[in-house]
Structures are given as structure tokens and as C-alpha cells.
Nucleic acid binder design. Sequence first.
RNA 1: GACUCGAUAGCUCAGCUGGUAGAGCAUCACACUUUUAAUGUGAGGGUCCUGGGUUCGAGCCCCAGUCGAGUCACCA
Length: 512
Amino acid sequence: MERKLSEQEINRREALQEIKNLGIDPYPAETFEINTSAKDIKANYERNKTDYKSISIAGRLMSRRIMGKASFAEIQDSTGRIQIYVNRDEICEGEDKTLYNKVFKKLLDIGDIIGIKGFVFTTQVGEISIHVKELKVLTKSLRPLPIVKTDADGNVHDGFKDPEQRYRQRYVDLIVNPEVKDAFIKRTQLTNSMRSFLNNKGYLEVETPILQPLYGGAAARPFKTHHNTLDMTLYLRIANELYLKRLVVGGFDGVYEFAKDFRNEGMSRFHNPEFTQMELYVAYKDYEWMMDLVEEMVEKIAIDLHGTTKVQVGENTIDFQRPWKRYSMYGAIEEFTGVDISEMGESALRDTAKSLNVEVDDTMGRGKLIDEIFGECCEGKLIQPTFITDYPVEMSPLAKKHKDKEGLVERFEAICNGKEICNAFSELNDPIDQRARFEEQLELGKRGDDEAMVLDEDFLRSIEHGMPPTAGLGIGIDRLAMIMTNSNSIQDVLFFPQMRPEKNQTETDAEG
RNA sequence: GACUCGAUAGCUCAGCUGGUAGAGCAUCACACUUUUAAUGUGAGGGUCCUGGGUUCGAGCCCCAGUCGAGUCACCA
């Protein structure tokens, strides 16, 4: 399929050919050794000028200002941008001025990758720059890059803003929008910080199956696939909870996994079909203990990323400093609605919900009604990190019944910026009770709930061998990353968010 | 899934009452040896998302669709 080239693409292909005609390889095989970076130069040149008399650096050409026999340009490497100064008679010492007049001025374009050698100096206007002595073409770029300019006041002009193009062509987004790159670096710092916290506690990072014969550990619709050799249905995991618990049975007292999970459900700025959760299980602990751990861990992450416990998210300043506020679910509802529902039965709850303008229907049981009231009246108002504890048993088939509150389980969620960021229980380790809860789920499934859990006989067998009392946690890494990077959409913390295929793509696999 | 908004040059966007498509940056040509949103002069560049319809005539109006964003629903 021939694609029609734009004027600028034709220019670049012609320049590519001319470069080759001059005997220059536009994609050289030999290594271009570098000994510094844009960031390093800017940070350290003023203090130690002697180290920057002979530098070698490579990057992408991002702007050019040609003034006859001398030019300024900017190159961008993985650490940032730096200005370079190119003088005709210094990069072309003899009579032949081709490298400057032809290659640099005519055949190179914004977006090309070059290597330069030279020395660092400060211009008359005070900008730390590289005085170029040698210039080498490292990669010719064949497509025009969107030009993003920032003026002296910091205003961005002609940005690359169309969300569709930014997500589909993330590589371009990353090149021209530096704040995008910063967000992803922060995301990695977040997981690094969390991982080192957990390792320092002595917990073991593990890997468990993504392809599962039975999906479990959460209430969600799965992606289904097929294994040819085994001729069997497999599901992409919706959670790894039941596997990590098997490992606790097996004698690992603290295990965790950063897990890509997959849920075949709606998409929104808070939901992507594949997303990342960190799940942690620690034996001989309960949910109270786990709350302390979550506070400690997330506070540390905020400090590692921002140097402070305070993080600006939209219009809110969120302070992760311990201790966080704790409400029981009943307490939160009473706090925000003034109604004490703790003693209410199902019909009283339904009337209460209606009086609070919460939409309900007759299929909702007690637990669902409570959850609905909480979601409508409380969750969105919880901006500062807050723990909500003690959920109705109906909604939590894997959580242990509360030690002294009838009808509730030992469960908490942390809410922050109006959204759930984690979910944790004292894990149910009574195999008889667990089987009964699964059977309730099966009943829900038979009645048409396509998100009801399935019964995992091997998991039951494992806890019949005895799982120690265990605290478990699932923390949404994408949601936490959104908060820590002040991102409005999950797509801004996923390199390649899920999208429908582009219409121009070849349709080899477009069967429905 | 419902509703709202959007799609025009490589990018960001205008486009009047329906009458042969516009700007800035980018590109091309020329000038310019410390510029920085470089500057000056000139030029080129379009499947107006797709397909129908109305009309003498559609970027614009109508219908259907595609893709995206937002809100809601779903996501316990």
C-alpha cells in the first residue's frame, strides 16, 4: 500500500539521498561515544569548567537559528536540551565547506539525530552552550516533528496537543512534550520506591500466572483466550490474589507482586483494560496493621518523589503525612449525610438511599445499598487520604468476618482525591466459610451476575491445608501514579493506553 | 451503552449568509559570524475524517458511519 508523502516528507527523503550521495552514511553502524549529557553540562559546567573542554554528546536536533556562516541550534538528549553553536570555519577547517553549507544548513532537519564534539562555553546572553568542533550525522529522520516553542514567559506555542495523536504516537509526544516524559519517570520512581520499601521489610517479590484456567480474586469480567496444545480455555487474570495466598500457604510469610491485571469492562479516564496492581500478603498480620503499613509506604513514596508529603493534584493540595483519617463505613456515611444506618435493615436502607437521592433498584441487597450510599454521598468528598473500614460482608467474599461487628468484614479502602487507591482485608482463612462464600457467588452467577466469582477448588484445597492469619493489600499503581503526577487521566500514566485501531492501518486481524 | 463536543496544511488553529481554502510556526529559496518564539524578503504545501443527500454550487446544511475527548451508566 503506497502512502502519499507530504511535501516535507519528500524534502527529507531527497535530503537523505543527497547525504548518501556525499558519501555520508545517514545510519552509521559504528558507535559514537558520548561523555556527557545536557543535564550534566548545565548542572556542573559553571563549577568545574575545565572538565568541559573536550566533550562528546549526541541528541536530536530540535531547533535551528542559522545566521550565515554561524548558527545556533538545540539538541535534546534523554536528559534535556542544550544549545549548540556551529561555526562554518570551525567544523570545516579546509577549503571544503560542504559539511556546513550543505549538510548542516540544507540536509539536516529538525528531528535528526547528530553527534557533536566540542567545548562548553557561555554565550554573550549567558546561555551555557556547546561550541561545536565536529559534527556527525547519526540518524536521518524522515517525518516532520511538531514544533513546540516556549517563549521567554514560559508560554507554549503550537504545542502537540491532540490527545488522539499523542496517545497513538507516544514516541512523538515524548520527544516534544517534556512534562510527559517527567510523568513517566515519576511513575517508575514510584514503583522503585514501593519496591525498595517492601524489600526493606523483607518481603519477597514473586511472579504468578497471568494466564489462568480460572479467574479469581476480584469481581470482574475477564478476557478469554485459548491454548492450542492443551486445547483449553484460559483467562487473563483479573487479579493474582488467589495465587499469592497459595504461596502464603506454602510458607512465604510476606510476598508481593506488581501485577498487570486485565478486566474486560468499560473504559474511562480512570479505567484501562489492562492496569497494574501491587498485591501484598503478610502472614500473622491483620488489616489494622496493614493500614499502618499503607500510610507509611505512601508517605515515603510522596517524599521520595516530591521531597515533601504534600502533593498538588488539580486544585487540591493532598498531604500524605501520617496518620491518615480513619472512618468506619457507617461512620463516614453518618459524617457526610447525618444518618446513622448501622442498625438499619434492607428496607430502611432503601428508603434512606431514596431520601438521599441515591439511585437504587430492587435487586440490591443490604451490602450493595450501603456501598451505593457511600459511593454517592462520601467517596467523592474524601480528598485527603482517608481510610474507610469495615465493609458489608456481602461485597467481600474473600475477607474475614469482623472480630466483633456482625455483618461486616475486616476490610479497608484508602480513598484519596475522591477515588479508591487501595483495598485490603484481613484475609479469610477459614476454608469452610470460604467455600460457603464462593457458593453464594455461584448463586449470584446463576442469577445473571456476570461478575460473580467462580469457585476455585484448588484454591480451597490450599487453604484447607491451613493458611495462617494474613493481611492482604491491593494498591492501584495507575491511580496512585495519577495522583503523584497530577494527571487527570489514566492515559497520562500509561505509555500506550488502549485505543481502537486507526482506520488507515492494514486490517489483517480485524475480524469481529 | 446514552448524551455533549470535536476532526480543515507537518503542528496549533481561523473560516462570515452556502459562492474556487486562510494565519502563525514548520518546509523551500535568498541574505545574515553570539542568536534564542532569531530576523528580513519571496515561494510552495490541502482526500476540509468517510459515504450518501439537498443545492446551479457544500469545509459550512441534512442523514448514516469512523475515530477521539468529556459527562453519565458500568467498573462491588
